[in-house]
Design a protein around this nucleic acid. Structure first.
Length: 317
DNA sequence: GGTAGACCTGGACGC
DNA sequence: GCGTCCAGGTCTACC
């Protein structure tokens, strides 16, 4: 008998808006079904992998229903709830959201504030590494192949994201050959080993008392993590005071904000432009870009993963 | 502290 | 079908 979980959400929570709010919702093993408006993904739980399909009845603030493809023990249920809560940012302080809307009133009416992320910090770190120095279709491909090659299968045959334990046991060459990750191979294996050896402690990174700058400094030391990746991981940790500046920022600066000059000059102007939004600047920056994408491709919850969702490339927008 | 060049892959393009 | 070029952040060597 498959398990069904009922998950309370903040009163402003809307699944189709808040799940389809960041590119990772298009990456394996996550699957947003634009027709059924459900979010499906396989999670690694104490009793093994399980696929969960999450839906909301369409009303803001209605509880979510998550249906698993197998029975879940109490320990499985607790872990599934913890991961879903992280992924959908259900635990994000509503005062923090209100502060953001006071600072940037453009998003108050639509209610945009929450950004989709992975159920674990490890997956967020690896996804960030697979998004560096490649166009989006390659990021899509790397994540699909990582899951197919190394993800534990749920009873319905779909793979989870590989655990640090599985990736830590691989040789770099194996990752390169089976997942097309290129020179990122050794960096991904080393990151996985650091998680397994507990040199990277997710609790320290997730602790609100840990200063942003301490986290940034630690991230920059890691293989494959530079200034862009560190800022991106910071926002994934709910710390929105840094901008992950990349070629996409330059495109946005030029085409939407009307800035001119070299890439470096445009990046500096983008940085300055969002300074007034202080510790919420990433959300202001991101939703501005997200709205631009939606103006070109339709609302994100209508995007098909295999077509629209696989084709974004800054230089072609 | 700043910067040039290497690192890989997939897609576009020309022949 | 093959070769060439390009996009994309991090890392190292060098000034």
């Amino acid at each position: 008998m498959p398990a069904t979980l009922t998950i309370p959400v903040p009163r402003d929570y809307l699944l189709l808006r808040d799940a389809c709010s960041y590119g990772y919702f298009l990456l394996e093993p996550t699957f947003w079904d634009p027709r059924l408006r459900t979010l499906r993904r396989v999670m690694s739980l104490p009793g093994g992998a399980a696929s969960l399909t999450i839906r909301q009845d369409g009303r803001k603030g209605s509880p979510l229903q998550a249906v698993a493809d197998r029975r879940l023990s109490k320990a499985d249920e607790r872990e599934a709830l913890r991961q879903i809560s992280r992924m959908l940012r259900l635990d994000e302080d509503h005062l923090h959201v209100r502060e953001f809307h006071r600072l940037d009133a453009r998003w108050k009416r639509s209610g945009r504030a929450r950004l989709f992320r992975s159920p674990t910090l490890f997956e967020d770190v690896i996804k960030t590494v697979t998004s560096c120095n490649v166009t989006w279709p390659s990021t899509v491909s790397m994540n699909r192949r990582l899951c197919e090659a190394f993800g534990e299968k749920s009873p319905s045959g779909r793979p989870a994201f590989p655990t640090p334990q599985i990736l830590a046991r691989q040789r770099a060459n194996t990752l390169r050959a089976r997942c097309g990750v290129g020179y990122r191979d050794a960096r991904i294996v080393e990151l996985a080993r650091m998680f397994v050896r507990e040199e990277l402690d997710p609790a320290w990174f997730e602790d609100p008392l840990t200063p942003d700058e301490a986290i940034r400094e630690r991230l920059i030391e890691l293989p494959g993590i530079g200034p862009y990746a560190a800022a991106n991981i910071l926002q994934l940790l709910g710390r929105y005071g840094h901008l992950p500046l990349d070629t996409e920022s330059v495109r946005h600066g030029k085409s939407v904000l009307g800035f001119r000059g070299s890439s470096r000059a445009v990046m500096n102007r983008v940085q300055k432009h969002f300074e007034p939004f202080g510790r919420h600047k990433f959300r202001s920056y991101w939703f501005e870009m997200w709205c631009f994408y939606e103006s070109k491709r339709g609302q994100a919850h209508t995007w098909d993963r295999e077509t629209t969702g696989s084709s974004f490339t800054a230089s072609k927008l």
